[in-house]
Structure formats: structure tokens, C-alpha cells
Amino acid sequence: MVKVTLWGSLRSATGGLTEVEVEAKNTGEMLKALAKKYPALDPIIEGGVSVAIDGLIYKEAWFTPIKPDSEVVLLPYMKGG
């Protein structure tokens, strides 16, 4: 199980939770599992999200490995100038 921290405003999609647990070994599996467990997250994930694993931000990428004790944070998709 990995623990995923969501950004605050996603609470409405998870019944009030900002920390959720899913079974996943990499980012792609995690996103799929999240969307399955919380269907309201699906369009948000589809629309594009970033994932921070142990402090490093990954904008897209399905195969970044996640260790069970990794710190995983779901973040909105970001862009600079």
C-alpha cells in the first residue's frame, strides 16, 4: 500500500480525505488505482496531474517506481514561463 497525499481541494472527490491509500508499485498504477477507488478523481487525473515522490516532482510518467515507504503527493499539473 502507498499513502498518497492529495491537494486540499480534492477532498470533495474523496469524501473529505486528503490522505488515501492504494495498492501500486509505480506512478501509473497509483493513478489508475486512485481513479478506480475515487471515480470523482478520474477526470482530474485525466486532465493532467503531477506526482511528487520523495520530494521530486514528476509531471507525467507512468513507470516511476514507488516504494511502500515513499512520500507520494498528488499535485496539479504545473507550467512555468
Binding site: 491537494w7 486540499g8 481541494s9 480534492l10 477532498r11 472527490a13 477526470p43 482530474i44 496539479p76
Partner: peptide, 19 residues
């Protein structure tokens, strides 16, 4: 627009919360 909490008018196109 997606995920806009109640109480905001139709011009609010995005809402986010962190912390």
C-alpha cells in the same frame, strides 16, 4: 468549470487549496 465549490459565481473557473 470543474471542482468549483458552492457559493462561487459562474466566472470562477478554478479553485485550489493547499496546506
Amino acid at each position: 468549470f470543474r471542482n468549483i465549490p458552492e457559493g462561487n459565481n459562474a466566472n470562477v473557473s478554478g479553485y485550489w487549496e493547499f496546506g
